[in-house]
């Protein structure tokens, strides 16, 4: 099934950019949400994006799978450039999984149907195969026993793990996380972060927007700090948490740490 991937094998070498942004601008009306964003993410890299609210972090990753349309600049995912062409967009969306702050599970479908829907409809996978894959993904996030339940019967942490499994079932090359723990009660954050850490260790390419500094320190290859729609500073976690260069970064870190 994985040879349905649109990405060439060249991108599989660690370090080659799988996500490529150049000069990306985004406006909401007259408000500029992204200003000249340049960024590359290599294969198997884990990038954590932090920054104050309203700084454009979410908008940034939502542009990568075209939930938001960028107004200027180039975004390439796996060598495919995002344009208005719906076929390009669908190609990219097939290869990028996304996890939302509010889970966005489909309330009218069981957990299993939530996870198998896209593989069956988009990848035309036989039901048996899709369900086996789904169970495998649910085991990966440690909730196979909830497969027959409906999302409304699960706790927030469980729902978010189902959402991760749902995205993984499409066997994407990249996973995007949009503040995956912000809507969770404190005691449920750990179970979701554990699943994400495991995912990172398995070699998944990830871009994670989060406020969880512990997660950033533990698994990030790079930390990107954004403010006012701009990328202010980029560095390794050590560099970032011990020796930040920019004033805005220092201010932000002093407020949250």
């Amino acid at each position: 099934m994985t040879n349905t991937s649109v990405f060439s094998d060249a991108t599989r070498v660690k370090g080659e950019p799988i996500i490529y942004l150049e000069g990306v601008d985004k406006y909401f009306g007259s408000f500029q949400a992204l200003k000249d964003i340049n960024m590359r993410v290599g294969h198997q890299e884990v990038v954590v994006v932090i920054g104050p609210s309203g700084s454009g972090k979410s908008t940034l990753i939502r542009c990568i799978n075209r939930l938001e349309k960028h107004d200027r600049g180039v975004i390439r995912v796996g060598g495919v450039e995002i344009s208005d062409d719906i076929r390009n967009i669908q190609e990219i969306r097939r290869e990028t999984g996304m996890v939302f702050q509010q889970f966005n599970l489909f309330p009218h479908l069981t957990v299993l149907d939530n996870v198998t829907l896209a593989p069956r409809e988009v990848r035309h996978m036989p039901r048996g195969e899709a369900e086996a894959l789904a169970m495998q993904m649910l085991e990966r996030v440690r909730i196979p026993e909830q497969a027959r339940k409906y999302p409304g019967q699960l706790s927030g942490g469980q729902q978010q793990r189902v959402a991760i499994a749902r995205a993984l079932a499409m066997q994407p090359q990249v996973m995007l996380f949009d503040e995956p723990t912000s809507a969770l009660d404190p005691e449920m954050i750990k179970e979701v972060l554990d699943a994400m850490v495991e995912l990172a260790k398995s070699g998944m390419t990830m871009i994670v927007v989060t406020h969880e500094m512990g997660f950033a320190r533990a698994v990030a290859d790079r930390v990107v700090f954004m403010s006012d729609g701009q990328i202010v500073e980029v560095g390794t976690p050590e560099h970032f948490f011990t020796n930040p260069q920019e004033d805005r970064t220092k201010l932000f870190l002093s407020q949250i740490l």
Partner: peptide, 10 residues
């Protein structure tokens, strides 16, 4: 819900 469906390439 629309966004989740879109993100799944439906």
């Amino acid at each position: 819900q629309t966004e989740a469906a879109n993100a799944l390439a439906l």
